[in-house]
Amino acid sequence: MKFLLAALLCSTLPATTMAAERPAGIPAAEAVAKAAFGADCDMNGMPEVPMAEPDGEGYGHSVYSFSYKPDYDPNGPGVQVEVYQLFCGSGAYNIRHAFVLKKSDDESPKLAAFATPDLDYSYADEEMSKLKADPKVRGFRATGLLVNATFDLEKRTITSHAAWRGIGDAWDSGEWVFRNGDFILTRFEVDPTYGDPDPAAESYVVYDVAK
């Protein structure tokens, strides 16, 4: 009976946390992230980062697997993908993550890059509580580190939410969907104004492919 109960409990856990062992691809993925970011991905000095717990706060690695049909060969075999979400480090209120992709049609894992808007805005007061006008996108840049990131395997979507300071009154948040081998920016929202609780928080959706 104890064995049956344990088996039933294990069957309900996500695939990323069923095994205590680190997946075989973790060391290679870590090497890619550490080579790219150096001290920004020192993993808080841990000699071995644990796998993330279910519903945890992100202080660990996670691995997700799925397959997709590339546009260049829609009738061919599916490409198998492993997404390594790596804990790179943490501060007082933010956690940094890197994402490494290992695809069955690639010989080695590769770092994922994420497009983010480069915003132009100016404040209307010294307290930086108001803007003179809505933020404007003046271009895009790429980053390999996301803050407080989560991955929805069903939607194949990564989201991030970076607090600009501890109380979280100013922040930015993005969404990237996996399409044809890469993560594509689909939405970005920002609240660059400070002040809690007055003035009331005001955010701006500066990029949204649905609009």
Rank of each mutant, 00 (worst) to 15 (best):
K34T: 15
A15G: 07
A39T: 10
V79G: 06
N44F: 07
T17S: 14
L8H: 06
D71C: 00
V63K: 02
P50I: 10
G91H: 05
P23R: 00
V83W: 00
S65E: 15
P70A: 02
S65H: 14
V63L: 06
F66A: 02
A33H: 05
D42E: 14
I26A: 01
E57M: 11
S62Y: 08
A92P: 10
D71L: 06
G60D: 09
G89L: 04
A7P: 08
E53M: 14
E21W: 01
A20S: 06
S11C: 10
V63R: 00
P74S: 06
P14D: 12
F37A: 03
G56C: 07
V32G: 02
A20E: 11
Y72I: 12
P50H: 07
V83T: 05
N75H: 05
V32W: 01
G58C: 00
P70W: 04
G60E: 06
G78C: 06
A15H: 10
F87I: 03
T16C: 13
A92E: 11
E53P: 14
M46Q: 15
G91V: 09
E21S: 05
K69R: 12
N44T: 14
F87V: 02
G76E: 06
A35T: 15
S65P: 03
S65Q: 15
C41T: 11
P54Y: 10
V32H: 07
M51V: 15
M51L: 15
I26K: 00
T12K: 09
P23M: 02
G38D: 04
A15C: 08
F3A: 15
E82V: 02
D73I: 01
N75K: 08
L8I: 14
P50W: 10
F37G: 03
N44H: 11
G58N: 08
A20H: 06
M18G: 03
N44G: 10
G25D: 05
S62R: 06
Y64D: 01
G25V: 01
L5F: 11
L4R: 10
R22K: 05
G38A: 03
L5A: 11
V81Q: 03
A36L: 05
A29N: 04
A33Y: 04
G78K: 09
A92L: 11
A19G: 12
F87K: 02
T12G: 11
Y84F: 08
P14K: 06
L5E: 12
S65G: 08
A35E: 15
G60P: 09
P70T: 03
A92H: 12
G56L: 09
E48Q: 13
P77R: 01
M43D: 13
S62D: 10
F66P: 07
A6G: 13
M51P: 15
A19K: 11
A24L: 05
A39C: 01
P23E: 04
A15I: 03
M51A: 13
G78M: 09
A20V: 07
Y72F: 08
A20T: 07
M46A: 11
D71E: 13
Y72N: 08
K69I: 03
A24K: 03
A19F: 12
F87M: 01
Y84L: 01
A19W: 09
Y72L: 07
V63Q: 00
G38S: 05
